[in-house]
Design a protein around this nucleic acid. Structure first.
Lengths: 125, 125
DNA sequence: CTGTTATTGCTAATGATATGCAATACGTAG
DNA sequence: CTACGTATTGCATATCATTAGCAATAACAG
């Protein structure tokens, strides 16, 4: 049930969002239970915790489902909060390069680009 | 006093680290006060909050002082927790490029590369 | 059907951070 | 130097996300 709801959510969600979505499906699950299950789903590679530095002051952490999706990072509008997924291989290559320069083996990364989306540039220039 | 201690700390610190460091200097400051002052220092561009996705589960957020230092990102060893600062302009250029492709004006970014440092590669291969 | 184990919900603990408020330090005008 | 208004502090307490304890229930094997 939890899995099903997660896979039908299109974007970033908090544990509470999940609870609401579950309730909408007629399934009343305690928040505790959700919190207890999220780590398993994360380890299983079904969801990923994506807390944005930019928003993390106060508020629950967010997740997104990544099952079957290719790796991506996010572009975030500081004004409207809109999040855009992108994939840019050249960036990944350069990150590898940086790691190599320091003798590191790169395992993963967290990257978040913060700016103004086209609409917000117009409305607040 | 707070400022002085911060500038003498070489690396990432939590609010509690600050309290300890202050106490070492004979200055007993309540944690509350430290929490109240950190945002000002952050707005003033003296410190920057650098919570690592990789470590954030449980535990206080960390800051680093950036006053007078050039922009940099971090390479983090997942095994020993060692943090290395780096600067790699080509990466920044590509980030700009990604933003442009999506019509965004890039304001800043948060990037954290996670891997294994040279020492930890040997000891845990 | 019955005993065993895993999962749930509820309530209460935890830990980081924020807030209310009274006490104190500070800065300035006289 | 002194009196007063403002800003800063400490303390105790609140808040909020997350976790842990535990008893009740569901799932499941024999």
């Amino acid at each position: 049930m939890l899995l099903d709801v997660i896979c039908n959510l299109d974007f970033h969600f908090t544990p509470e969002d999940l609870q609401t979505a579950l309730a909408d499906q007629g399934c009343n699950m305690a928040l505790t239970t959700i919190y207890r299950n999220l780590p398993s789903l994360e380890n299983a590679g079904i969801i990923r915790r994506t807390t944005f530095m930019e928003e993390q002051e106060r508020g629950a952490s967010t997740y997104e489902h990544i099952w079957g999706k290719p790796h991506h990072d996010h572009l975030l509008c500081q004004n409207c909060g809109q999040k855009i997924e992108f994939q840019y291989d050249a960036l990944e290559v350069l990150q590898e390069e940086v790691a190599r320069q320091h003798g590191f083996t790169l395992l993963r990364h967290h990257m978040e680009l913060v700016g103004l989306c086209p609409q917000c540039q117009e409305s607040a220039p």
